[in-house]
Design a protein around this nucleic acid. Structure first.
Lengths: 203, 203, 203, 203
DNA sequence: CATGAATGAGAGTTCATTCAT
DNA sequence: TATGAATGAACTCTCATTCAT
């Protein structure tokens, strides 16, 4: 995963402990992704991780705590994926296109991310909101940069940023999570979305 | 609510029964909206509805069943709201603008809708998917109509429809559910989004 | 038991419910008496009562709640036993003797009472303290009455009341709970204690 | 604490070990006093003592074992306090007065003693009973000595001894543990109790 | 001797669902 | 049709004790 930032966990004092904690986090990603928060059970997580039930509580205070840790972990991972994808781009529109392409690829490989982030709406509303607000601000900043560079309209703001985020999220849902045979490739999707973004839909 | 379509419920034979069922459905909308599916309890729903616990099973087979009935009910309500909002419009772009405006107003008044629809992702994935696919197709049809009318580009398809749906959903999340003082009005949001949609973001 | 006063229970709405609640309370008296609060288990209480585990929570909010209800129940029972025992007496010293005699007989038949009241010190300190303070005040009042009648010294107060209560409690512990063959009868104990109380121990 | 008598502990071989064991015992006195046996946890005891969890089992076989060791330790301490308090007295009544005064002072400084001794009733009934029977016999012996000296009645026995013990214990509970501002001093309490003991309550 | 991670039995509690009235 | 008591499986969490280092 992209980050070592873990919220409020009990910090292991030995290398062995560190490994066990990581095993639990990875097992939880799978369990929560497959079954959702409420259907998931601690005992199933520890079974997947290959540790005893009680060991869970050596590393996390509660089911909520490991979920929160996981949301942060995934939220960071998404942002990293986008950051990596746009690293080589300089043109503002190309940046948006690369960001979406990177996100689509990332989501294809981590389909559990939608369920986990979405479920945060119920389990940990603060993380959920923080996740989208952070991303929204990041996009808004890129739009301002694009305006600065004279490539984008100067009146773009938060509304446009959230609209763009929504586009990306739903294209991910449709083409990375619910993809069917015959669907356009991620690149094609990103290209079409980029055109829409750049020129709009008017004839 | 907008529709009487209820999936697979036990059909009441008397007028009194019909009223009890409606009371349960309304109580469930509040309960699921406030607490989410798993935190919600049947006994709390019956308490809100003012009927005995056992009576619940006279009208619904299970907790899942009433949730599914509710998702359909809400899904229909959203679509109706959009349909009503665009009834008087003829210009394709004005239609989209009116649809978003209508949706923002509807969501402001039914904030529970996001939680309920979103939770369907976990409780009843089929309804969840069906909800968005239906809306996506409806939007795609409008884009084709716009192209037919010569107002929109002729190459618009499913990708653009999902992008547009994502825009609308996220603008609703940000400006109808998470709205803050100082935020633009629904009309302003709809206008800005419409401009983005029409012309894109290029300078 | 002596009283229907039950603290903060869920009030049954039917006769059947009332009976089940009483069965649980009686079973709890035995279970807590035999095993003590912490070793006692809800499942054992319901097994003794012949009801399902879940039914417990129809009538009590928690293990603590039924324990508190029981302490009140027993506390009332002790006080009733004393009240009944002294009903026919008029002489202040005879009253004290009858009170102790009545208490010893009651404790012999309800040996669980010591364990339950004593354990309240840990589980519900407020009830524990209230139990002894109430009894202490009642004794102090009787001493004042005795002084009024000219039979007892006029300077008796709280100190003497607590001393007398301690005497009674420990004589109950030794001769009602830990009684052995060859021990004096309750009447003999009450008589000896009464002499001590009246005349003291000086030669 | 007053004694080194520890029941069935693992005997440390080194000075360092002896110190660790003492730290655990002192920490346990605080922990059991504050939280009671069942709420107390080994990990909390070791935390208070500043040693690792596993080290506990180097010095005690179980939670029960350290509790038993502690009860003996405290029981000895109570008896020592009484013994010290009466060391200089020769008059039988003055001895009883000094014993109570000493006990009240000791209990004021070791309020945890009541909880620990009382909880022994549940955790280790044998120690509990032995504690009071030993003290009872000691008091009975003193009463016989008083009779021998011609100062007390010749017919005093076990009943009077237990009555006296009960007086002392309850006066300790009321005036050493539950003391309030405005209460009589330990000396005043001891004096009043002594008068009661000597002359009784008759006018 | 000291450490702290690992273990797993066992507890209290919840609540969807059933059923007798 | 309405009621509310009864059921029991399933879950999260605790912690005394063991063990590898």
């Amino acid at each position: 995963m992209a980050s070592d930032t873990i919220e409020n966990p009990k910090v292991p004092r030995t290398e062995r402990g560190r490994k066990t904690q990581r095993k639990l986090l990875d097992a939880a990603a799978i369990e929560f992704g497959e079954r959702g928060f409420h259907e998931a059970s601690i005992s199933s997580i520890t079974r997947r991780a290959g540790v005893a039930l009680g060991s869970f509580y050596t590393y996390f205070d509660s089911k909520d705590a490991i979920f929160r840790a996981l949301v942060l972990d995934m939220s960071d991972a998404v942002k990293s994926a986008a950051r990596d994808a746009i690293a080589d781009e300089t043109d503002p529109l190309a940046i948006e296109r690369a960001a979406l392409g990177g996100f689509l690829r990332f989501a294809s490989e981590h389909k559990e991310i939608y369920r986990i982030i979405d479920e945060a709406e119920f389990v940990d509303p603060d993380s959920y909101r923080a996740h989208y607000e952070t991303i929204g601000e990041r996009i808004a900043q890129r739009l301002r940069d694009g305006a600065q560079a004279g490539v984008m309209r100067p009146d773009l703001g938060e509304v446009e940023a959230w609209a763009l985020m929504g586009m990306n999220v739903f294209l991910g849902l449709r083409y990375a999570i619910w993809n069917r045979s015959g669907d356009p490739t991620p690149e094609d999707v990103a290209k079409a979305a980029n055109t829409l973004l750049a020129k709009g839909i008017e004839a």
